[in-house]
Design a protein around this nucleic acid. Structure first.
Length: 507
RNA sequence: GGCCCGUUGGUCAAGGGGUUAAGACGCAUCCCUUUCACGGAUGAAUCACGAGUUCGAUUCUCGUACGGGCUACCA
């Protein structure tokens, strides 16, 4: 390891919503960078023009802003190593591809998609269901290895569509040390001749990742485990182009799993939990996929939960602030096995964070949820008081709305059926007296209210238990909520009396 | 099929030659609470299998099984 400044990157392709696993990769990058006083770069991998989705890049930045994992350098943050979109770096890759060809490490291939399809069909056997363009096959295809130099030149001059492929050596062992898995090795004979430069002149991921990591002086490269099989291609490219000494250290992160395999959007839809960080509206299909943010998660809880999905600090601690994570995170405590996502546990993290965050901070985040329900919050102090009263029973920010909306508006409906069967004249009289007493009351606090209420009950020979639930339903509409006299206290004299009267009229 | 990675309760996981194999989520029961929760207590539940090394393997080695990933001019 050198003493070079730590530089890491997250390199998403702007094709859709930002997945849980993606955010975790961002998080590990970010934590590692900040811990080492390094830079966190966001590079947009938009080399596939067919899959480009307008708005997706902005959406990714929005997600990072929400989670608080802002890049130091990116297409919108700027930086010395730009441009940060691969589409804007197109010309750079060609040079390196040419160098590889010149050195005999790569070659031109003129095979059309149809010819490739035919090759796969022709060579497909039961023991080899997916034939690869490799050392066995390349001699039978139309490329600069099988064609004469003149023919190749003619095709090139004629502007024939072609790609550049890496020429994988035979019988070499490529190995590298993964920060999480230790030494990993591959036999190059079983790796295919991956396309490096596509017919449209754009690089594939394989070329781009190596060239850009080099040019952007990346020191540590983290990505999902699904990239492990193509790692030998990248290692070889490093060796051919820039030297293994300059290669970043790799860490292939374990996958986040759903019920069967990699966690997918489908898992979320099936079991009713989000998979994306924020709501994603696909501009092509107009399909909306719900995000953690809109579901009612706090960013603090979201990243805390994600950090622990595959990593722990070796103690029993589970709740970490971002700052604590920056201090304590370490790659060698990251698991190598995949982790199944548990939505219940995710909600628990959010619950804990709702409890520990001050009401004022929660108020800011929960306001939009109230507004979405048509409840405008004029009095923020009241909102904070409400939050303090109900937050311990809330797992999601939306629970805060359910638990707290009756402080701002009349309940939409009252559970009359819970009261009616046991209702009688005595209770009617009792509440009439309660109203008179409350109207006269000078001090309006929970203790006083409870005291008076119970005195009146005793005087009327009614057990408090028989009238407590009715009172609750009068105030909140149903059988839920904090202590009923705390509610009355916060609701205020006029509103409390108004609701009792209103409910009495319903019976 | 081939290659690669992985495997401690239902889930997240600590531990890494000798332990009663932590803890958390979830679940169950009880306590608290004249609602619902919170909180507290208790409980059920785990080292995939087979060899080897060893006085002794959950821990080390090798196999097997199982799971997952990759196998595009997608990332």
């Amino acid at each position: 390891m050198s003493s070079k400044k730590v530089r890491v990157r997250f390199a998403p392709s702007p094709t859709g919503g930002l997945h849980l696993g993606g955010v975790r990769t961002v998080l590990y990058n970010y934590l590692f960078a900040k811990q080492h006083k390094g830079d966190f770069i966001l590079r947009t991998e938009d080399t596939d023009q067919g899959r480009y989705v307008p708005g997706a890049e902005k959406y990714i930045f929005d997600c990072l802003r929400w989670t608080g994992l802002e890049p130091d350098e990116s297409a919108i943050h700027g930086g010395e190593y730009g441009p940060y979109r691969q589409s804007e770096r197109k010309s750079m890759y060609k040079t390196y591809a040419a160098q590889l060809i010149k050195d005999g490490y790569a070659y031109y291939a003129f095979d059309t998609p149809e010819e490739l399809e035919k090759m796969r069909a022709d060579f497909k056997t039961e023991s080899n269901p997916s034939p690869q363009y490799d050392h066995n096959i390349r001699g039978k295809m139309r490329n600069s290895l099988t064609l004469s130099a003149e023919e190749v030149q003619q095709l090139l001059d004629a502007g024939t569509r072609h790609v550049v492929r890496i020429k994988m050596p035979q019988h070499e062992t490529v190995s590298f040390t993964d920060m999480i898995r230790g030494e990993v090795s591959f036999d190059t004979s079983v790796v295919d001749d991956k396309v490096l430069l596509k017919a449209d002149g754009m690089p594939t991921y394989h070329l781009a990742v190596v060239v850009d990591d080099y040019l952007m002086k990346i020191t540590h490269a983290f990505r999902g485990e699904e990239w492990l099989p193509s790692a030998p291609v990248h290692v070889l490219l490093w060796k051919y182009l820039f030297g293994l000494d300059n290669m970043p250290e790799w860490a292939h992160l374990p996958l986040i799993l759903g019920t069967n395999g990699k966690l997918s959007k489908r898992d979320g839809a099936k079991y009713g939990f989000p998979v994306f960080a924020m709501n994603w509206l696909d501009p092509k299909t107009n399909e909306l996929t719900e995000g953690f943010k809109e579901k009612g998660f706090l960013p603090e809880a979201f990243i805390n939960m994600l950090a622990l999905l595959g990593w722990n600090d070796g103690t029993a601690q589970e709740l970490f602030t971002k700052q604590e994570l920056v201090e304590k995170f370490s790659m060698d405590r990251v698991h190598s096995g995949g982790a199944k996502f548990d939505y219940e546990k995710a909600k628990w993290f959010n619950h804990e964070w709702i409890k520990r965050l001050p009401a004022a901070a929660l108020a800011q985040q929960v306001k939009p949820f109230f507004e979405a329900k048509g409840i405008n919050i004029a009095d923020e102090k009241l909102l904070s008081a409400v939050i303090d009263l109900v937050k311990e029973r809330c797992h999601l920010l939306t629970d805060l709305v359910e638990q707290g909306s009756f402080f701002f508006v009349m309940p939409e409906k009252f559970d009359v059926d819970a009261v009616k069967p046991k209702w009688n004249e005595a209770k009617q009289l009792f509440f009439a007296e309660v109203i008179r007493n409350f109207e006269l009351g000078t001090t309006w606090n929970a203790t006083e209210l409870e005291h008076n209420f119970k005195e009146i009950a005793a005087a009327n020979q009614i057990k408090p238990g028989e009238v407590l639930l009715p009172l609750r339903i009068m105030l909140v509409g149903g059988k839920f909520g904090p202590h009923v006299f705390d509610i009355a206290a916060l609701l205020g004299k006029d509103e409390t009396i108004r609701r009792i009267k209103y409910f009495l009229g319903l019976l």
